[in-house]
Structure formats: C-alpha cells, structure tokens
Amino acid sequence: MKLAIASGKGGTGKTTVATCLASLLAEAGEKVTYIDCDAEEPNGHLILQPTIEHTRPVEVSVVEIDSKKCTGCGECCKACQFHALACINKSVTTFPQLCHACGACSLVCPVDAIIEVPQKRGIIREGHVGNVAFIGGEMSVGEESVVPIVRALKAVVPSDGISILDAPPGTACPAVETIRGTDRVILVTEPTPFGLHDLKLAVATARALGLPAGVVINRCDIGTSDTLDYCQEEGLEVLLEIPNDRAVAVAYSTGTLPTKVVPGFRETMLALVDKVVGWTEEPSNT
C-alpha cells in the first residue's frame, strides 16, 4: 500500500506524522518504507536518522542543439512550453535549467538537430533505521524543478509492504507528482483559516487524482471549528486529532521522534497506526 502524507499548507506536521507513522508501523511488525519526497527541503532524515547505504545521482536528459544540423528554423522554440529555447538570428540558444525533458523539441525538429544530454539534478539516498527502510531525495542547489527527483524516488518505491510518501507542501507539480499513483492520501492540516484554505486545495487535488483522502487535524485545540465543519460537510474522515503540545515541537527541533520522548504522543499516534493497518487488511479496491 502506498500512502501519501500531504497537506497543502506547509508546516502543518506532515513529516512529524509520516516519520512517527513509519516508526510505529515497523514496531507493529509491518514492512515499512519511508520516502522523503520533499526533495527541495528534505528533513525526514533529521528525525529518523537513518544509516545511508547508497547514494546515487538523479539525471535527466536536457536539450542541446547540434549546430551542424540546425537550420535555425525556430520550430523547437515555438514548441517549448517552458521557454527553455530561444531562436536568435537563426541560431538556437538553450536554457537547460528550464528544460523539463518533455521531448517536444525533438518531435518538431525537421532536421533531427536536438541532442539529449544527461544532467545531474540531485541525489537519492537509500538506507534504513531499525526496521524502517529509508529513501530520500535531495535536489541540487540552483535547480528549477524538483519533479525529476520525485519521479526517480517513486521509481524505487517497493511494491510490497507499506510505503509512506512524505509529500512536499502545496498542490503544485511536486506534490501532485508525489500523490499521483498512490493508494490513499492523508492530509495533515491545522484548524486555522490558512490551513483550511490550503486543505480545500489539497482535497480537490486528491479528488482530481481519484484518490481517497482522510484528514489529520494537528494542533486541533487552536484556531476555529471551521476545519472540522468542512470535513463533515465534505464527508472527509477525520483520521486523527492531535492536541497542541509544545513538547512535540521541542522534540522535533532536536531531531527526536516525538513518539519516543513526549508522554502520551505515542498513544495518540497509535490510533492512526490502527487505521492504516486496517486499510492493509481491507480487500484491495484501490
């Protein structure tokens, strides 16, 4: 089962929920893989502190022009939706950082002058902590798009056991790429107007992708009841409500799993673990 932990709004507690869930599921005897898909600012490794066994580059093919063949017709520049090419005085200039490697330029080039060159965009680390397998991505500094890293991470997600994909915040390409093709989405939010605004976007995203979504309301005793009302109106299951506790933030800030040090937090999270285990026992219809 592939489970995406997403949010819409940043800082709601995705990584806290994802790392605690991974750790507790492993304790419960499940085969668990934690995948940090927030490759622009990964931090799951700071909490889980895995031993890394392999590190490898993520490369994508980016456009280069064979100047011997290019006639400067400019068709490639018109085809490129990302403005990675410009045609100036019958000569094509490339901007590889903007290239999404979609291949449109190759399709339209009448003289086969497009060359695809591998370019490193980031790395993937694989390791483990206890019985939790760890996979994490990290985008290179200065890169434009994290999507190639997310794609590379998803290519190594195991097909068995429970995979927990810690998504980037937002509902743009990096989050969509993470969520797409999973079995379920857990949306972590906080009951503030900002949290609710972005939760609505995240719910719409999950629904557009045809995925069942449930909600974890973190710091449930702050803010307003609007988030709870919204979940009821929309028929969204509230999987867990986590009370605000400064000790959780303190543990997180020191790179410690809150389930290990904050009294009562483990018990709070176990309710979510039970739900996840329950999903794995359901007849597969997702």
Binding site: C77, F82, H83, A84, A86, I88
Partner: peptide, 9 residues
C-alpha cells in the same frame, strides 16, 4: 517560468 526568455524572443 521562462518569462524573460519568452519576452526576449
């Protein structure tokens, strides 16, 4: 993205 390049073109 690439507004500067598109406008430049």
């Amino acid at each position: 993205s690439g507004a500067g390049i598109a406008s430049g073109q």
